[in-house]
């Protein structure tokens, strides 16, 4: 054996080991899908899929057991809509400002600060929603409950602003300057250039940001577990306690649920529901992002 052969062998081995590390991520996905589906199959042997999707009550911990996912999905929908109502307008305006108006110096200071908002642990936001925002809202809306979708949704929205603003800003800055100059040459003002030229041109990138924000809001757990309550109810009223899919998973994990029971399996069914939704949204986001990076190349 000559030395060259040994070196080549070493090089190939290293490449294979590195590839193996990359494949670990594939293994993670396989693991998630396997765990979620294998336990969910056990659940659907006892509760039919139709009952799961159409029953309007979710009471696995009561004596009168109902297994309808709709109330939990309704809770998730409600908090997500409220969060997006805050994050999308605020994130977009802030992105337009940072990309079209702010000087590079302002940007350098403001952006790291916005990133800090995204770095605050969610359990802290939950505390903030429950202890600070809800009492504040009580002054304005006296009838609001101590646990409610509104305060959790609002705080979640603030948490998601940096995500929307930084991804939208990237998309806007990728729009070629010639487009802006063309509009200026036709006599447009800056505000018109920003909203009528840059925003539409960056549309697919901005949509990717919004889709990712939806996915994040659906999957957010601690804020809703702390501040939104633990009462699954099919309502669009943001002032009463509700429960989201994620908050239910936390609630049941805190109790001592014996392995193998139907209650235990509800964790996995809820997880599967959550995974399917966020997976679809993530895929849409991935494709939108790919499209926007291709347009101007």
């Amino acid at each position: 054996m000559n030395i060259k052969f040994l070196i080549n062998l070493k090089e190939t081995l290293i490449e294979k080991v590195l590839l193996g590390c990359g494949l670990l991520t594939v293994l993670t996905t396989v693991g998630i899908i396997y765990v979620l589906f294998s336990e969910s199959i056990g659940f659907f042997k006892e509760v039919s899929l139709i009952r799961f999707l159409t029953d309007t009550q979710w009471t696995p911990l009561f004596t009168q057991k109902h297994y309808g996912i709709l109330p939990l999905m309704g809770g998730t929908f409600l908090t997500t809509v409220i969060a997006l109502g805050v994050a999308v307008p605020a994130g977009l305006i802030s992105a337009v400002y940072l990309s079209e108006y702010a000087s590079s110096k302002t940007r350098q200071i403001v952006k790291p600060i916005l990133e800090v908002l995204a770095a605050v642990p969610t359990v802290v936001y939950g505390y903030f929603a429950l202890i600070f925002v809800t009492p504040l809202l009580k002054n304005i809306i006296p009838g609001i409950s101590s646990f409610n979708a509104l305060s959790a949704g609002l705080v979640m929205g603030v948490m998601i602003i940096p995500l929307v603003s930084s991804l939208s800003e990237d998309a806007m800055r990728a729009v070629p300057f010639s487009l802006r100059e063309g509009a200026y040459a036709l006599g447009s003002r800056k505000i018109q250039v920003a909203w009528r030229i840059v925003l539409p041109a960056a549309f697919s990138g901005i949509m990717a940001a919004v889709v990712l924000a939806i996915s994040r809001a659906i999957g957010e757990t601690m804020i809703v577990a702390i501040a939104a309550g633990q009462q699954p109810s099919l309502t669009l009223n943001p002032l009463v306690p509700i429960e989201t899919v994620t908050a239910y998973i936390v609630q049941i994990s805190l109790g001592d649920t014996p392995h193998g029971t139907l209650e235990y399996k509800t964790i996995f069914v809820c997880g599967m529901t959550l995974f399917i939704f966020t997976f679809l949204l993530n895929m849409v986001c991935f494709m939108l992002k790919k499209r926007f990076s291709e347009i101007y190349e």
Binding site: T28, G31, I32, Y34, V35, L36, S38, E39, L212, S215, R216, I218, G219, E220, T221, T246, I249, V250, S253, I267, F268, G271, L274, F275, T278, F279, L281, N282, C285
Partner: peptide, 14 residues
């Protein structure tokens, strides 16, 4: 983009 709570379920199962 997978919600962190799902990683917990993965851990519980595996």
């Amino acid at each position: 983009g997978v919600p962190s709570v799902i990683y917990g379920i993965l851990g519980l199962g595996i």
